[in-house]
Amino acid sequence: MTFKSSNSSSRIMSRPYIFRHLNKVRWVCLTLVFLMLVLIPLLGIYQHYVSASAYRNLDGSEKLLFDSMHALSSPFTMDPENDLDALKGTTWSGQLFGLKITDPLAIVGQMSAGLEVYWPFVLTGLIPILLTMFFGRFYCGWICPATFLYELNSNFALWLKKIGVYTGDRKFDRRIKYLILLLGIIASTITGTIIFASLYPPAVIGREIYFSIALSGFGGGTLFFMATLLFDIFVSKRGFCRYLCPGGALYSLLGRFRPIRIQRVVETCNDCEKCNAVCEFALNPMRDDFGQECNNCTACIAVCPQDALTFVVSLKDLDNQGPGYCSREYRSNSDERVNEK
């Protein structure tokens, strides 16, 4: 039995220590994004107070908001009234220091609703689109505020399971979300409004956070999101992201041919299945099945005891490499093969 070597068309990148810790970096990233979603409306309110020169009219809790936001922003700006205009919006669409960045789903939705292409707007989505084409569905793993809450929700569901509450883990067809994307586009075209804005969790979350802080009201969006959280607990783990999210569908499509992807080093893999267990999107890393849906979350890299997963530069996944070389199955097979001889 010959030792099957890796596909020569791929280059195995050296596995620096850093890849194991990228998952932590990802969590920091998700937390930061969520924090910004909360902070930006608070800074906005602070900005209103500054604009109106209204400090003397504030009462207790409002003063607290003012003082804390002032402490935060004063090292960076002497003119909060105008300078804080630089930080606005949510992940759905926002601006950072004059640079406008928009979720590509918004662009798709708007083009279908208005049946026109407004190029300045399309250009605001250029950076996310290019990054997605390069890194894949990274938004879903690294940025999306819904991911932040869904992953916490998944951990919560695990705890519930531990104490005996029923949790669901049904599997549906991943392709449903592509259908939803298509239906959403058609519906937007027919009605002339962007349907996605109401049904796409990161847009909903960004809006609900903004409303609850700046406009003192929750709305139907919160109920909708709560419903998806319950769906995730009781019906299907990460069900929305896996099977229903139109944004996820779009990014998967865009990220199909991403150059930066995760690959299994079959030589050191021992088929322990930890990677499959930890994968939030029910992919099959143990058998090289990442596909277009993988969001490079590096959870599998972090959990692998054998460092058998790593990043490579490659335009497509390897085919199923079979059992890991350190696995019992492989060894028993190879023993057989050896014995066969």
């Binding site: 930006i40 409306p41 906005g44 900005q47 209103h48 604009s51 109106a52 009234e81 205009d85 606005k88 919006g89 949510t90 759905w92 669409s93 926002g94 601006q95 928009t102 918004a106 939705g109 708007q110 609703a113 208005g114 049946l115 026109e116 407004y118 002339g192 409004t193 962007i194 804005a197 109401s198 847009a203 960004g206 809006r207 903004y210 409303f211 700046a214 406009l215």
Partner: peptide
């Protein structure tokens, strides 16, 4: 109605609330 993507930034930046 066709163009607005409901991003809420206009209200965020409005100094008059």
């Amino acid at each position: 109605i066709g163009r607005c993507i409901r991003c809420n930034q206009c209200a965020e930046i409005c100094p008059n609330n």
